[in-house]
């Protein structure tokens, strides 16, 4: 007996799963009952007999209200059946009004009607079921929160993208403007016939004049070869001829600080740097080959 019951329960759970989602829609679907547009002529309506039966059936007139506990509530306006929300709201308000009336009556009678908080008794729904209900509520809440978070993240991403795009645009514009201004300046200078060339030339030795304007070298220390241990001092020192400077150069190359192991790597600078070659030796080689 218990097995099929359990099965049923799971079934109903499944049912409720999809029901809960389309509760309102399904309801209105169900209610879409066809009815005759005009009342059928043959329908019986025996009012006297009905009233007679009512008289037979009903309790004596003076039965105390406590036996009935019933309240009549006036609906203000006609409720549209197909509008689920309005309909349920009407029922809810009816119930609320009714309980208010009833509680006032009970209170005036001096009867206890509210359950004390320490009164525990069997409930209509079992604890297990209520646990499930709670779980569902929590899950729903979590789902909503997650959705909210996702939405926020999406929004933030969109915003950041926008900002990034704007930044890029700005940068491009800046670049363009700069180039433009320089060109203008050059033209002006050309037109004025390099009037003030001599003195200013050193200052105007812009690095971007040779075309690759804002290209940054990707080296951390521009102008320093990777193996260099003194941070570019060697280059200045090398080839100047003086003894002490030579010493410095050697130091930068072979010892005293800096990263080791990089000195064997070639870079564009080192390959193009012929300063360390002995010209005489190269000539000698040539000679030998011949």
């Amino acid at each position: 007996m218990s097995m099929p019951l359990i099965n049923d329960d799971t079934m109903i759970e499944d049912e409720t799963e999809d029901l809960s989602e389309e509760m309102s829609s399904s309801e209105s679907e169900q209610e879409e009952d066809v009815r005759l547009t005009e009342p059928s002529k043959t329908a019986v309506y025996n009012r006297d007999a009905l009233l007679d039966k009512l008289g037979d059936l009903s309790w004596p007139e003076n039965v105390e209200w406590i036996h009935k506990l019933s309240v009549d509530i006036d609906q203000e306006q006609e409720v549209d059946v197909n509008d689920d929300l309005a309909r349920e709201l009407a029922f809810y308000t009816q119930a609320l009004e009714g309980t208010r009336h009833a509680f006032e009556k009970l209170q005036s009678m001096g009867l206890p009607f509210l359950r004390p908080s320490d009164y525990y008794a069997e409930m209509v729904k079992t604890d297990g079921h209520m646990e499930k209900v709670k779980g569902r509520l929590l899950a729903e809440k979590r789902k909503m929160e997650e959705a909210e978070e996702r939405r926020k993240a999406r929004e933030a991403k969109r915003l950041s993208k926008e900002i990034q795009a704007q930044k890029l645009k700005e940068r491009a514009k800046q670049k363009k403007d700069d180039i433009e201004s320089v060109k203008k300046w050059r033209k002006q200078r050309q037109q004025s016939g390099f009037a003030d060339s001599g003195s200013n030339d050193a200052d105007m030795g812009f690095s971007f004049e040779d075309g690759k304007v804002f290209e940054r070298s990707n080296k951390k220390r521009p102008g320093v070869s990777p193996g260099d241990r003194s941070g570019g001092k060697a280059k200045q020192a090398f080839g100047k001829g003086k003894k002490q400077k030579k010493r410095e150069g050697r130091n930068s190359k072979f010892g005293f600080g800096g990263k080791k192991g990089m000195k064997k790597q070639n870079t564009a600078d080192t390959t193009n740097d012929f300063s360390k070659f002995n010209k005489g030796a190269a000539a000698g080689n040539k000679k030998r080959k011949r």
């Binding site: 309240v71 009549d72 509530i73 359950r115 008794a121």
Partner: peptide, 10 residues
Amino acid sequence: LRGSRPILTF
């Protein structure tokens, strides 16, 4: 509560 008397509203 299971078995508490309901208030009826009509």
